[in-house]
């Protein structure tokens, strides 16, 4: 077995995953080859240190923090899905409705009345007082002429 093949098998050898024949071949090579043996020792030491790493303890308030975050999520979800009446006070909704009703009433009834008044119509400009007086005078004159002609 050559160096390259032995090095490829070192991990499996450490894990005990080699068949009987391959395991013997690797062991024989390691006995003869100093370079491969050193490499094997370093790899084994590294893996041993890794497997000796202790399990860490999660922080003491770990569970309560998860529960707090879940509660916040639920509250946020509820806020997004609750009807408007649950978020805004009933009094505020009534007030808004009242204002809207008044505005609607003004638009529907009061505004047309105001605009139908002659003073507000653009196409019927009120005659000036002098013109009106002159017209009336002319009419009176015509009536007088008509009476005399009879």
């Amino acid at each position: 077995m050559d160096h390259g093949r032995v090095k490829e098998l070192l991990s499996d050898y450490i894990d005990g995953d080699l068949g009987e024949k391959e395991r013997q071949d690797v062991e024989e090579h390691l006995e003869r080859c100093k370079e491969c043996c050193e490499e094997f020792e370093q790899l084994k030491k590294t893996v041993n240190v890794l497997s000796g790493f202790q399990e860490l303890k999660a922080p003491k308030d770990f569970e309560s923090k998860i529960n707090d975050r879940l509660k916040k999520r639920v509250r946020r979800r509820d806020r997004d899905t609750t009807p408007l009446s649950h978020k805004v006070p009933f009094e505020t909704i009534c007030l808004i409705m009242l204002v809207m009703l008044i505005a609607f009433y003004i638009m529907l009834y009061l505004l047309p009345q105001m605009t139908s008044d002659e003073g507000f119509k653009q196409d019927k400009v009120p005659e000036k007082k002098e013109e009106r007086d002159k017209k009336e005078e002319e009419e009176r004159h015509e009536r007088r002429v008509y009476r005399y002609s009879k």
């Binding site: 790493f53 399990e55 860490l56 999660a58 922080p59 569970e63």
Partner: peptide, 15 residues
């Protein structure tokens, strides 16, 4: 489940 797995998961994530 949290209490059972918290150390294992925390260790994995920390590493």
């Amino acid at each position: 489940l949290v209490r059972h797995y918290q150390n294992k998961i925390y260790t994995l994530v920390f590493r």
